[in-house]
Nucleic acid binder design. Structure first.
Length: 645
DNA sequence: CGCTTTCTAAACAACC
DNA sequence: TGGTTGTTTAGAAAGC
């Protein structure tokens, strides 16, 4: 189509200018971009290293509490295997271009683990020295455990950092000899260690489920098919496991040995939004069976959790794509020009035929990719497919970029919930088109401003700041913005001292939405049902985010002013739609505009979770229309000299 | 099928 | 002269 070449072609000046804007934002995007370093080999080996260290540290903990002899053995084992990790790490640095970085990273790792070992030895000696004083042992153990926990946290942070940079990637099918590596690293010794530590024979099902690959599945990098078809979370899908996943896996092991539960930690029920405290595991189980039984509420929360995971995986895939593009770019640059640039095996599962991954020829409007159902999309999410899947846009449904397949276990409302809570952060970082019309976005930008007025340039800035999608194809969307400003009567141009600013005529804006949304009784009921769960679901999201410890993308701005402001936009969309009633009985088919259906309003609530820094967004059925209830000021950027245009 | 909305593209003018 | 801002027209896609 003509549109394919259009947006990219005329973007000479404006695109650069836009790039400056994006680059000057200094947000998470930048951090990631700057720190991302190309080296696939180091990545995989690094991951294995970390995973094993992580697991061993946990084993160490158990061992320490089991008995000291086991502890010593474990420490010895850890030390030697750490060396082996580093050795393997060295052997896998084969990429000349990444060698420098790899060596640097290796050095860091080496230093890190050496320090770690020193600490361990030190603690060991201290513990032995104090062994005679039996009363002090427990205290020493406590200190030691804290030390280990600290190390673990460091490792997790490191893991997370690497992952965020896109450096962490583990795929069963990648060319890197990851499996042999993994198998070579863990096998019988660990199993033996596991036996020693737990004092129990390794379960048959454990080794069976791993096809004998490993006695102890510490990494979950095994290509075993997902157990949960809904989640469908397997390595080929997300390509890599987030740190929290690793953590979960490890803690799951831990749980088994302690008759614990993934939903139970530190005496607290980890069910999203619950946080109930329990003295013992049994009472927790009781609570779990009673409060979180299989009912509508739990199902809805589970769906939400699934969406959380999926969104995170989407984000992950996106960043992987970016990394691959970077790596490919560097690869092409630093080597002889080859006809077909070979990606560095990191995320190269489905490179488009004869198309360099870096090239981004497809604009978001390119209607080339088929609509990928959610469930399917999940299983086929790859850097490439994402690239083509995301941008397909139809009028409403596609705007969500969360296509719903007929077989999808998620109701439209579920997706909306997920969207609503997560969108802000998601769209800030993911190159996905926001599900709002230009008019709505412009209006929101203006309403967010202190003076409720913005210059055109400030509107541009808001777009680029709030949506990664609008950091490219500037000529296209800027033209659309101008077009909308001129076209819609709701946007009023006001001559100012400094020039002209744009304001919003609310009356006109409300008039402007005759596209009434019909709601079926089923939909209404669904909405109401979910609304009843609003706070819980919202809390579920946040709890999940917090638990996942992904501050950059999620936790940081959950409940943040900008989230609320965007939520406000959503609310307005919903309000406007609902103002026009829901009359007939048509169904809420997935192809329809999901957002404007909802009579949902965002309000701020008292935090359900004491850890939450801000009150969670919750959804209520009030028709309350308070325009400034959450107009936080995430706006300074527009007034600063961030304006590089 | 017609109308409406939205998006994209583009031409054009005024202004800086 | 080139870029920005603002207006307008046209066409396509999609929903009602």
């Amino acid at each position: 189509m003509m549109q394919e070449a259009g947006p990219e072609a005329p973007s000479n000046g404006t695109t650069n200018q836009n790039g400056v804007v994006a680059g000057a934002e200094g947000g998470a995007r930048d951090v990631r971009a700057k720190s991302a370093t190309p080296s696939s080999d180091i990545t995989a080996a690094d991951l294995v290293n970390f995973q094993q260290q992580q697991s061993r540290l946990e084993l160490l903990q158990r061992c320490m509490f089991a008995n000291d002899a086991h502890f010593q053995n474990t420490l010895k084992f850890t030390t030697t295997t750490t060396e082996r990790c580093l050795s393997l790490l060295t052997n896998h640095i084969s990429d000349d271009r990444g060698a420098k970085v790899s060596l640097c990273l290796q050095q860091q790792l080496q230093d890190f683990y050496k320090k770690q070992q020193e600490q361990l030895h030190l603690q060991l000696f201290q513990q032995h020295g104090s062994k005679q004083q039996s009363k002090e042992v427990s205290a020493q153990q406590l200190v030691f455990q804290q030390q280990l926990l600290q190390v673990q946290q460091l490792q997790q942070q490191h893991l997370l950092s690497l992952q965020r940079q896109g450096l962490l990637s583990i795929q069963p099918n990648q060319n890197l000899p990851l499996h042999s590596l993994t198998q070579g690293m863990i096998p019988a010794e660990l199993q033996q260690l596991w036996k020693e530590v737990t004092g129990a024979p390794v379960k048959e099902e454990n080794s069976a489920s791993n096809n004998g690959h490993r006695g102890l599945d510490l990494t979950s990098a095994s290509p075993a098919p997902p157990k949960n078809p809904l989640l469908n979370q397997h390595p080929t899908t997300n390509g890599q496991y987030s740190s929290h996943t690793l953590k979960r896996e490890s803690s799951a092991l831990d749980d088994h040995s302690h008759h614990s539960h993934p939903l139970y930690g530190h005496g607290v029920c980890k069910w999203p939004g619950c946080e109930a405290v329990f003295e013992d595991f049994q009472s927790f189980l009781k609570h779990l069976n009673n409060e979180h039984a299989l009912d509508d509420r739990s199902t809805a929360q589970c769906r939400v959790q699934m969406q959380v995971v999926q969104q995170l995986e989407l984000q992950l895939a996106k960043d992987k794509e970016r990394l691959q593009a970077m790596m490919t770019h560097l690869h092409v640059k630093s080597t002889e020009p080859k006809p077909t640039p070979q990606p560095l095996n990191l995320v190269s599962k489905s490179v488009p035929e004869a198309s360099p991954p870096l090239s981004l020829p497809q604009t978001p409007t390119t209607p080339t990719a088929p609509l990928t159902p959610l469930s399917q999309a999940h299983s086929v999410i790859t850097p490439t497919s994402l690239h083509t899947v995301g941008p397909i846009r139809r009028r409403y449904s596609d705007k969500y970029n969360m296509p719903i397949s007929p077989g999808s276990p998620f109701s439209e409302t579920d997706l909306r919930f997920c969207y609503i809570v997560q969108n802000k952060e998601f769209y800030m970082n993911a190159d996905v088109r926001p599900p709002f019309t230009y008019a709505s976005l412009i209006r929101q930008a203006i309403l967010e401003s202190p003076e409720k007025q913005l210059t055109l340039n400030e509107i541009y800035n808001w777009f680029t700041r709030m949506f990664a999608y609008f950091r490219r194809n500037a000529a296209t969307w800027k033209n659309a913005v101008r077009h909308n400003l001129s076209l819609h009567k709701c946007f009023v141009r006001v001559e100012n001292v400094k020039g002209a600013v744009w304001t919003v005529d609310e009356l006109e804006f409300q008039k402007r939405r005759p596209q009434k949304i019909s709601g079926s009784p089923a939909l209404v009921k669904n909405i109401q049902t979910n609304l009843g769960y609003g706070p819980a679901l919202s809390a579920a999201f946040q709890a999940s985010m917090a638990e996942n410890n992904i501050p950059l993308y999620t936790t940081a701005s959950i409940g943040s002013p900008t989230l609320n402001s965007l939520a406000n936009a959503i609310r307005e969309e919903m309000n406007g739609a609902m103002d026009h009633g829901n009359s007939n009985g048509s169904d809420s088919s997935p192809g329809r505009s999901p957002l404007p259906h909802l009579p949902i309003h965002f309000v701020k609530e008292e935090p359900l979770d004491p850890e939450e820094h801000e009150g969670p967004l919750s959804l209520v059925t009030t028709a309350n229309h308070s325009p400034d209830f959450d107009h936080h000021r995430d706006y300074e950027d527009d007034h600063g000299n961030e304006d590089m245009l």
